[in-house]
Amino acid sequence: MGALLSRDLRLAMRAGGGFGLGLAFFLLLAVLVPLGVGPEGGVLGKIAPGILWVGALLSCLLSLDRIFALDFEDGSLDLLATSPMPLEAVVAVKALAHWLVTGLPLTAVAPVLGVLLNLPVEGYGWLVLSLLLGTPALSVIGAFGAALVVGVKRGGLLLSLLVLPLYVPTLIFGAEVVKRGAAGLEVVVPLLLLAGITLGAAALLPFAAAAAIRVNLR
């Protein structure tokens, strides 16, 4: 398992791995939104939690189709499926690798973008915490979507159509945490619900994704 994780991380870091693209996209979004909305700090501060969460979600989406499609094309997925490693574990490790190269860096730079968007001071801690708890769910749900479309050529658009509705609960609870936190309100309930979704998705979706991959390899 460690071997697969380190291989996926190495592949993401080397040339053409696409590491950093999601981050750049996230940054672009945080620059474009004020240009479109206008410079008033009050308005921006109010919509910042939502923008940052939607931005994180879209940046995550960008690299989802790489999770399985490359391994499917070069035959690695066939070989992994016949290896001693259970396919469920392959899915879980690949989702983890995806989170380490997208979700985690997004969480790290989010406070900087919060400054650009005039996020109220009270919100920063909750922004980082909610992204830390919520982005793993984005990677796992995305891995499930990627497993569904792995056999479809140019399935990127289809993948977005399948995955975005599944992101709704995570987005709602995640943004709610930051919104309430920034306004100085109680955040425990949405925070726990967010953590619940992440844990539930991480526990159950690898099985659904592995089933989908087996169907696609047939």
Binding site: R10, G16, G17, D74, G75, T82
Partner: peptide
């Protein structure tokens, strides 16, 4: 007990 080798070798170009 089975090792399968297909048309595609499952190699990663950047490794």
């Amino acid at each position: 007990s089975i090792a399968y080798a297909a048309h595609a070798d499952g190699l990663k170009a950047v490794l």
